[in-house]
C-alpha cells in the first residue's frame, strides 16, 4: 500500500498554490457581495491554464490527468475561495465523456458550461450558472445541452455563481444518461470536498496564527486549553478530511466501485469539518472575526453554502449507510447463495 501523493503531484500542488494566491483570494469574494461580476480567477483563466480541463482527455484538448490531480488543484483553489468551482468542471468532463467536439470547446474556453440541478424548465439554485454560456441538464433520462436564462438570487456566498436556470434552447446529447449523471455528481462531490478541504485548512491556519499572538489576562489565548483544544479538534478533522478526499479521488480512476461510498463520505465529512472550523475561527478571533472587513465570514459563507450543494449531509450520510449495508448483504448472500435486501 502507498497512500500518499508523489513528488510530481506535490510540485504540481505547490504550483497551483502559487497561482491561486496571486490570482484569487477572499478580497474578490467580499467584493462580489456588493457588486456583480465573475469570481476570480474566472472561467477563462482557468481554461487557459488547463485547470478546468484537467480531467478532459488529451484527444479532446484537455490534460488527461486523474481526478486526484484535480483534487489537489481544487484544494489550493479552495484556500483562496476561487471560482468558478472545479467541481463543475470535473462534472462537465464526465457528462460529456466521449464527445470530443464539445469537450474541445470547453478545453479551449469557447464555451463555459454549468450543470443545472433540478428541472431544466426552472431549476434549483445551480452552481456557476452566472458565468456560464451553456448548460447541461437531466430531463428524464436524457442529458440536455443548451442555452438558458439565469436569474441570480441574493447570495450568501457570491463566489458560487448560484442562479435559477431556465433552458431556452436545448438538444439531447446523450440518452439513458442516468448512470452517467450520478457518476458526474459523485465526481463533483469529491472536488467540492477538496475545495472545502483547502478552505478549512486555511481557516484553521488563521485561527492558530491568531491564538499564538493575541494575549488576554497576560497569556496568549492559544495557551488556554479551551481555545487550544478546539483548534486541535479542527486540525485533526481537516487532516482526516484530506484522507477521505484523496481516497475518493483515487477511487474515481482506480476503484470505481468504491466511488459512490467514498464520494459521499468525503462530502458529508467536509460539510461538518469546514463549517465547524469556520465557527471556531470566528469565535477565536473574537469581535474582529465578526466584522465585514475580516476574511473569516467569507470562508464561513462558503461553508454554509457548500454543505448544501450537491446534496446535504443527511443525504450523503444515508448513502454511506445504505451502501455499506448492501455491500455487507451482498458479501453474505454471496457466501450462502441467498439474496436478502434490506427494506428502507
Amino acid at each position: 500500500m502507498n497512500f500518499d501523493i508523489d513528488e510530481e503531484q506535490r510540485n504540481f500542488a505547490e504550483h497551483a498554490r502559487d497561482f491561486f494566491s496571486e490570482q484569487a483570494g477572499p478580497g474578490t469574494a467580499r467584493r462580489l457581495l456588493d457588486e456583480a461580476g465573475d469570481p476570480a480567477p474566472g472561467p477563462r483563466v482557468l481554461a487557459e491554464l488547463g485547470f478546468s480541463s484537467l480531467t478532459i482527455p488529451e484527444i479532446a484538448g484537455g490534460v488527461g490527468a486523474e481526478l486526484l490531480n484535480m483534487a489537489l488543484v481544487a484544494e489550493q483553489a479552495g484556500r483562496q475561495l476561487a471560482g468558478p468551482s472545479l467541481a463543475t468542471a470535473a462534472r462537465v468532463a464526465v457528462l460529456l465523456e466521449g464527445d470530443e467536439g464539445r469537450l474541445r470547446d470547453v478545453s479551449e474556453g469557447r464555451t463555459v458550461i454549468a450543470v443545472v440541478d433540478g428541472s431544466p424548465a426552472g431549476s434549483s439554485p445551480s452552481m456557476d450558472a452566472l458565468s456560464a454560456t451553456h448548460f447541461l441538464a437531466l430531463d428524464g433520462e436524457d442529458l440536455l445541452l443548451g442555452e438558458g436564462r439565469v436569474s441570480p438570487g441574493e447570495p450568501i456566498d457570491a463566489t458560487r455563481g448560484l442562479g435559477f436556470v431556465e433552458l431556452t434552447s436545448s438538444e439531447v446529447v446523450c440518452r439513458d444518461a442516468r448512470e452517467r449523471w450520478e457518476r458526474a455528481r459523485q465526481v463533483a462531490c469529491v472536488v467540492l470536498a477538496a475545495e472545502g478541504l483547502g478552505a478549512a485548512d486555511r481557516v484553521v491556519e488563521l485561527g492558530i496564527e491568531h491564538a499564538r499572538s493575541r494575549e488576554t489576562f497576560g497569556r496568549p489565548i492559544g495557551a488556554y486549553q479551551a481555545v487550544k483544544h478546539r483548534l486541535v479538534d479542527d486540525w485533526v478533522a481537516v487532516n482526516q478530511l484530506r484522507s477521505l478526499v484523496w481516497w475518493a479521488a483515487w477511487a474515481a480512476d482506480h476503484a470505481p466501485e468504491q466511488l459512490p461510498l467514498a464520494a459521499s463520505a468525503a462530502k458529508a465529512y467536509c460539510a461538518t469539518t469546514f463549517e465547524t472550523a469556520c465557527e471556531t475561527l470566528i469565535h477565536v478571533l473574537g469581535g474582529i472575526g465578526f466584522t465585514w472587513e475580516h476574511d473569516a465570514h467569507l470562508y464561513w459563507r462558503r461553508a454554509k453554502v457548500d454543505r448544501l450543494l450537491l446534496g446535504d449531509e443527511s443525504e450523503h450520510l444515508a448513502a454511506v449507510a445504505l451502501q455499506s449495508i448492501s455491500a455487507a448483504t451482498r458479501a453474505v448472500s454471496g457466501e450462502t447463495g441467498t439474496t436478502e435486501v434490506v427494506p428502507v
Binding site: F3, S243, L244, W247, Y269, S314, L317, V320, V344
Partner: peptide
C-alpha cells in the same frame, strides 16, 4: 440510517 452513516464516515476517516 443517518446515525449509522455518521459513525461509518468517522470510522472511514480514521481508517484512511
Amino acid at each position: 440510517i443517518e446515525a449509522l452513516g455518521r459513525v461509518l464516515v468517522e470510522s472511514l476517516a480514521a481508517r484512511y
